[in-house]
């Protein structure tokens, strides 16, 4: 199980690095969908093997909402030609952001070793923490609302992975998961759709939101 977890975890880290590399929104959405499905498969397997139905519920949530619904909805909502929708000028250059994402992974490992490792004794528990931080960085480094939302959802995936694997007994995690998904759905339903209609507008009219 530990080897399987390490495999899935490093695969996820690679996928987030790939998202940092990619500029086309559609490809990032597809990558995110793959990442969610992978985590869902792992959680499902874990839940079945260790007979924990809560983890199975988490897996179903992950696959249904973040694997299928949100990517599907986003792809439907890309207004211009899907293959053309992309980040024109990222805030941080791509190569630098890949390297920062990598160093975030290393930071998470060090953090995990000095805090958790003494009590948990699972050497690969740092991977979900790394994924959370990578998600934060994906959000910071891009301006596109879709990609920011994907960064947030990636954090959520990582939280599920963390709790499903390390603390399956944690109370109220399913409720928390439902709420997190609700946030995502509210966000895309109410906001993104509106914003995307004018995705090309200049940011001058947001002058009021500065300072």
């Amino acid at each position: 199980m530990e080897k399987f977890f390490a495999l899935i975890g490093f695969f996820e880290i690679l996928l987030v690095l790939f998202m940092q590399w990619e500029v086309y929104t559609k490809k990032i959405i597809t990558t995110f969908s793959i990442a969610s499905y992978t985590i869902a498969v792992f959680l499902f397997y874990l839940g079945i093997m260790e007979n924990k139905y809560l983890v199975v519920i988490l897996a179903v949530l992950t696959a249904g909402v973040r694997g299928f619904f949100i990517p599907w909805f986003m792809k439907k909502r890309i207004v211009r030609d899907p293959w053309r929708e992309r980040e024109i000028k990222p805030t941080i250059s791509t190569a630098l952001s890949i390297l920062i994402s990598l160093s975030v992974v290393i930071f998470a490992y060090v953090l995990y070793r000095i805090t958790f490792y003494d009590s948990v004794h699972l050497s690969d528990g740092s991977i979900p923490i790394a994924l959370i931080l990578q998600g934060v960085f994906l959000m910071i480094s891009r301006r596109n609302a879709f990609i920011q939302l994907i960064g947030y959802m990636m954090m959520e995936n990582a939280i599920f992975l963390f709790e499903g694997y390390l603390f399956p007994a944690l109370p109220f995690i399913v409720e928390a998961g439902v709420i997190l998904d609700l946030i995502g759905i509210i966000a895309i339903a109410g906001i993104v759709v509106k914003m995307m209609k004018n995705s090309t507008t200049d940011s001058n009219e947001f002058d009021e939101l500065k300072g």
Partner: peptide, 11 residues
């Protein structure tokens, strides 16, 4: 591309 390759080696 080089950054990705470096990341792989470091991972």
């Amino acid at each position: 591309y080089m950054a990705i390759s470096f990341s792989l080696a470091f991972l």
